[in-house]
Write a protein that binds this DNA or RNA. Structure first.
Lengths: 344, 344
DNA sequence: TATATTTCTGGGAGCGCTCCCAAGAATGTT
DNA sequence: AACATTCTTGGGAGCGCTCCCAGAAATATA
């Protein structure tokens, strides 16, 4: 039942080559012939065999998305969900097929990954949530397959797309400072991730630009989770900050819970700024001021860069930093002064 | 740089064919030769070209997972997250590669789907979240590619894996009845889904077996979401049930929120049973009695059945119903009597 | 030792496609 | 009308692999 080019050619009264030309939209096929062939293709529902095609062209149109073994819980994370959607949408649009590689554990990773990058099955790879000194990234240097990392990797020479973590955190700091807050605490993300590190540095830099320090006791780190935000906020409370920047919205949500429990009103008693721009921070009470990052667009850019690499339009490394945006909401809506404080 | 069978053969001093035999673990290769070839393969890091392989074998080892356009929000749903993980884990283990098809809208679905199932790129397909009269399912009947649906489809002749929705809802009903509750309400899932329908029927059947009715005013339907559970519970409250079965844990969580707001204690004033067995129902206060369904295993079974279909070990349609389990927690911990009621 | 039997190995054919080249058809030029 | 030029078209070759068959090597049997 499976048709071949030859079959279509026979039905249309032309040769294999002509049918191939029609399918690949190459010129130099007489209009009448072209239409006749297209009609036969339409009627038969013929689709070219992908394997044969890629055997000769050396390309499959398939790009892989690797999510390392650690991040399984994160799969429910709205960030990942949106990232995957962005990548999927962009690859559909670009005519790619997306293959998903979720490794269950390190052994699976070590066993499957080398095969994946060398079998010729993939045109390219998008790597997410790489850790510091990521073994996947190390293994990849050898392979010839184009790779784009989402999030800044800690090695040189790799193409990646990242959001402006540093700039975003800087914005958060200056925003809070401009409202008159002086004891601004940080609910940090793990510095074992480049995102955590960049947000920390940007935040410190922003405070410094406003003439403010970040005393060690005003910084407690979490792990991106709501629970860690809750715990960290409780610790922070002992040192009486008047505003807090949480390095993720999820942690900000946890912090908000801790503040509510402690009877501290937001923003009247304390201002709160998050990072990410997830729906949760918009729908909370009060809604949380945040640094919105373009997650879907980041995924889409990764796909486009990867395709440029695959087609040779560009050569690695390509780096792109996506802009972030300060979204002011209730949790930092009023200035320190109008909140009736005793400071300045 | 890309090696071929011929290259490996030359390096090992044997022919293409012998190398192929070693790689495919076929017998009748002298041990010494086999080891020499394996050594060369190990040293060179050779991996067979997937396209060439599948061109001749007619198989790619790739299975597709289709998530229709509607369910994008559901991607964050813990259910989908776990299902995808189950499917991914099982397909890794079975030596398959997983391709993910997230369609953004109906047009994309209509355009891409036919190509996907006919290009020969996929050995088989797993379809999730099909709706009643699903166009994908209808289109598929024509195609030759093996398909397994997760969740009972509303058409005949299709292989599928489902959980025992009917039996689970029946258990919930008899459990509540056995505790002495008499006005047991239903917070239903949409009957436009087979899961919603089956849970409704099982629940009614279970009540009937205990000699209890389901008065129309004791049934309000939601849409699986937390918000819909909240709203539905508030409506239900007006008709004073003494226990409620929510057809999903997420809705049960919403119901719990409504009950707390109304000052109704669970389980003292009202018992509550959910369905799914998600982490959220375990960690809530009080923890919610639920019907636990084996999500990961369901995904794994779908992969195995699909592989049986692909290899011809089995022929469609294959149907498998996964068992569910009543998990008793705080929200129905005590019997109606010991809760100090006036009934019986 | 000669022959029958089994085990192992090499090369041809072909999977369905794209690329290339050369031949044929159509058009342009004098 | 005769030739040069351009546009179309067909078929050969080959992508890297598996399958199959026949010949070579090893082993068993007389």
């Amino acid at each position: 039942m499976n048709l071949t080019l030859e079959d279509i050619g026979r039905l249309a009264g032309v040769s294999r080559s002509t049918v191939s030309r029609v399918i690949n939209d190459q010129d130099s096929v007489r209009l009448a012939v072209r239409e006749r062939v297209q009609e036969v293709i339409r009627l038969t529902g013929y689709t070219p065999n992908a394997a044969a095609r890629s055997l000769v062209s050396g390309r499959t149109g398939v790009i892989g998305l690797v999510i390392p073994s650690r991040v399984h819980s994160l799969f429910e994370d709205p960030y990942f969900s949106r990232l995957i959607q962005g990548i999927s949408a962009a690859s559909n649009q670009a005519g790619n097929t997306l293959s998903l590689f979720l490794f269950q554990n390190e052994e699976e990773e070590a066993e499957l990954y080398p095969r994946v990058i060398t079998s010729g099955f993939l045109d390219g790879l998008i790597l997410t949530a790489t850790r510091m000194a990521d073994p996947l990234l190390a293994r990849t240097a050898v392979g010839e397959i184009p790779i784009v990392v989402v999030g800044r990797p800690d090695v040189e020479g790799v193409s990646y797309v990242d959001v402006d973590n540093r700039g975003g955190a800087l914005k958060a700091a200056t925003h809070l400072s401009s409202l008159g807050y002086q004891r601004i605490g940080l609910l940090g993300a793990p510095v074992s991730t480049t995102a955590g590190l960049d947000r920390l540095n940007g935040f410190v830099e922003g405070l410094a630009a406003c003439g403010l320090p970040l005393p060690p006791d005003l910084r407690v780190d979490g792990d991106f989770s709501e629970a860690s935000g809750y715990v960290a906020m409780r610790k922070l409370l002992a040192h009486q900050p008047d505003a807090v920047f949480a390095a993720s919205d999820t942690m900000a949500l946890g912090a908000l819970r801790a503040l509510k429990e402690a009877g501290i009103r937001v923003p009247q008693d304390m201002a709160l700024v998050g990072f990410d721009g997830l729906p949760g921070s918009e729908n909370s009470v009060p809604s949380i001021t945040t640094i919105r990052q373009p997650v879907t667009e980041t995924g889409a850019r990764a796909v486009h860069i990867l395709n440029d690499l695959v087609t040779g339009v560009a050569t690695a490394p390509i780096v792109e930093i996506m802009p972030v945006e300060l979204v002011i909401r209730e949790s930092s809506g009023t200035s320190r002064d109008s909140a009736g404080s005793d400071v300045e």
